[in-house]
């Protein structure tokens, strides 16, 4: 019995390898075909732009978590960091602050919380998921406390235009995402920080022995993640024209993590690119969007994305073992 199973496995090795190494591309292709077949009205310019627009904020957060994933860690605090940044900025605008002030607040709040995560993980040696989960809960607590669960409207026209307006038919958010993807890619590929980051993720011992300040690299990765969560809040609050604590619900984590793993960012550290992560974001947004158009319930998307995470992490770990 055993022998038969064995033979079957060894025969299909090539096919398996092919499948594993190109999983994201294959997934994208399958999803595209499926969507084209089952969703009428999917391939309209309007819908495609809509998908891009929807993926912009998520894309920012995924670029953020990519750095953390590359170090081999995880950041579960992104949703509440994002919500808190947005709420504080919105509150500032309510009290008459201008757009510059609001942007500054969003970014600094994100950066600050990211630094707390990074300090606890890099220097205090705490477990990443524990630290970031705590920050998520604490952040949510602050959000709920500040807003009393009431959403804060944003009426600053300049702000709304700056982050959710359009240039021609292209939403500015898409342009921002494209630009930040470019920046992140250049930093990852060309800068010394990128080298440090990947080296730390691949083998932190080798990196430390080679004189790389690995603790600071960890600090930086989480700060980066927080910074991008702060920037994402700009896109989200301007699209909603309000800020509320519900922006930071845990479902957001599902989207972030599933985007990253689909985009080929390894949960075990060392591998993955911002480009891949954004590609993963598009796939996940496509899935949500098309399920939405087919009037499949939101709950079903939870199930699908949960399965997607497990499948892709499994593929990734098989790839690593090979």
């Amino acid at each position: 019995m055993d022998r038969i199973v064995f033979r079957r496995v060894s025969k299909s090795v090539n096919w398996k390898k092919l499948l594993i190494t190109n999983s994201s591309v294959i997934a994208l292709a399958i999803i595209f075909c499926w969507i084209a077949l089952v969703t009428p009205g999917f391939f309209t310019t309007r819908n495609i732009i809509n998908v891009l627009n929807q993926s912009a904020a998520l894309g920012f957060m995924v670029i953020g978590i990519t750095a953390v994933f590359i170090t081999g860690g995880i950041d579960l605090s992104i949703p509440s960091v994002m919500a808190l940044s947005g709420i504080l900025a919105a509150m500032a605008m309510q009290n008459g602050a201008g757009i510059m002030m609001a942007v500054l607040i969003s970014i600094l709040v994100g950066l600050f919380l990211g630094l707390i995560n990074g300090y606890a993980i890099g220097f205090l040696r705490m477990i990443p998921f524990v630290v970031t989960l705590s920050i998520q809960i604490i952040g949510m607590g602050i959000c709920v406390w500040l807003t009393s669960k009431v959403s804060i409207p944003i009426s600053n026209g300049t702000y709304l235009n700056a982050f959710s307006g359009k240039i021609g038919i292209i939403p500015v958010s898409v342009i921002y995402l494209a630009f930040m993807t470019f920046v992140a890619t250049v930093l990852a590929k060309k800068s010394i920080w990128g080298r440090w980051l990947y080296a730390t993720g691949i083998n932190i011992n080798t990196a430390t022995v080679s004189g790389i300040p690995t603790r600071k690299v960890l600090l930086g990765a989480y700060a980066w993640s927080g910074l991008f969560a702060g920037m994402a809040s700009l896109l989200i609050t301007s699209r909603l024209a309000s800020a509320s604590s519900t922006m930071g619900q845990e479902g957001v984590v599902l989207n972030i993590v599933s985007s990253a793993v689909v985009g080929g960012v390894s949960f075990q550290g060392g591998f993955g690119t911002p480009m891949g992560a954004v590609l993963g974001t598009l796939i996940i947004t496509l899935i949500s969007n098309s399920m939405n158009m087919m009037q499949i319930s939101y709950y079903m998307t939870l199930i699908v994305k949960g399965i997607v995470i497990i499948t892709f992490v499994c593929l990734d770990s098989i790839r690593h073992r090979n």
Binding site: W193, Y198, T206, A207
Partner: peptide, 26 residues
């Protein structure tokens, strides 16, 4: 703790000396 096995030879050889290979800024 000696090598980054999956990384390229170039990445490995430059690892301890990255700062001196900076061109502009980072």
């Amino acid at each position: 703790d000696g090598m980054l096995l999956p990384s390229s030879i170039l990445d490995n050889m430059s690892l301890a000396n990255l700062r001196s290979y900076l061109s502009a800024g980072p």
